[in-house]
């Protein structure tokens, strides 16, 4: 019941905060504000620059691009709210678990909280016992599967349905970015940014399999690939729930 109330209140606030401001001078600036409210670490100039570039390449208006971003962000947030409710209903006890071993090229998903929203997080297995992942400040890093803790309840380990050569090459590519690529706060248009350079956790895995396997690990396409989009991509298979 408590979880239901929490989810309802959060959903209400999401709608309330996401409602276009009555003082907005245009739809575009209203969408921009909404996006920056939901992704406050994303710099406005980076967002607008990316939007301009996409609009130019696709022929869409900048407003349409911004509208699409808002739609995708809200979809992700709705998923987060529903999952929070589901974990509560199923009696998640709030424990933690080391993410544990899996095969090279597999990945894990875990809920990941910031002060703004539960955006989720994904990391890839470089070896059976070593994770490669992109985290804020550090960028792409490695961490032992023994030491990497995740919340029990909605975390998962999944494999990618492709050849072992593709899995091997994708993991090698992700590992090759360690220490080179910094973190990027831009989830909203990360499908359109370069594979080389700053990236977040979902972009790392998505790029790895685009480049090595020609797979699009994004359940709903669009402009941004979020951690849940990778988790729910059709070319993935559940290995175990955590």
């Amino acid at each position: 019941m408590k979880k239901h109330v929490v989810t309802t209140v959060l959903a209400f606030c999401l709608v309330a905060f996401s409602a276009p401001s009555a003082f907005a001078q245009s739809h575009s600036s209203s969408y921009t504000d909404e996006i920056l409210q939901m992704q406050p670490d994303l710099k406005k100039e980076d967002l607008l620059s990316s939007v301009r570039s996409i609009a130019k390449n696709t022929g869409d208006t900048e407003e349409a691009v911004l509208k699409q971003i808002v739609k995708e962000l809200k979809q992700d947030q709705m998923k987060a709210s529903k999952e929070a409710e589901k974990v509560g209903t199923m009696g998640g006890k709030g424990g933690t678990v080391p993410v544990g071993n899996s095969s090279k090229g597999d990945f894990f998903y875990t809920a990941s909280q910031t002060a703004y929203l539960n955006h989720g997080h994904v990391g890839m297995y470089y070896t059976s016992s070593t994770i490669v992942e992109s985290v804020p400040d550090t960028g792409v890093r490695t961490i032992s599967t023994t030491l990497r803790k995740v919340d029990q309840g909605d975390a998962q380990v999944k494999s990618v349905t492709t050849s072992s050569a593709n899995r091997e090459n994708a993991a090698n590519w992700a590992y090759s970015r360690v220490g080179i690529d910094d973190y990027s706060y831009n989830f909203v248009t990360n499908r359109k940014t370069s594979h080389i350079g700053d990236k977040n956790c979902s972009k790392l895995i998505w790029s790895a399999y685009v480049l090595h396997g020609n797979l699009d690990l994004d359940v709903d396409g669009g402009l941004g690939v979020y951690p849940r989009d990778v988790r729910d991509a059709p070319d993935t298979r559940l290995i175990r729930n955590i």
């Binding site: 910031t114 002060a115 985290v135 804020p136």
Partner: peptide, 10 residues
């Protein structure tokens, strides 16, 4: 907290 949750420096 874990490093992935430091996205907001909080």
């Amino acid at each position: 907290t874990t490093a992935d949750q430091d996205m907001d420096d909080k």
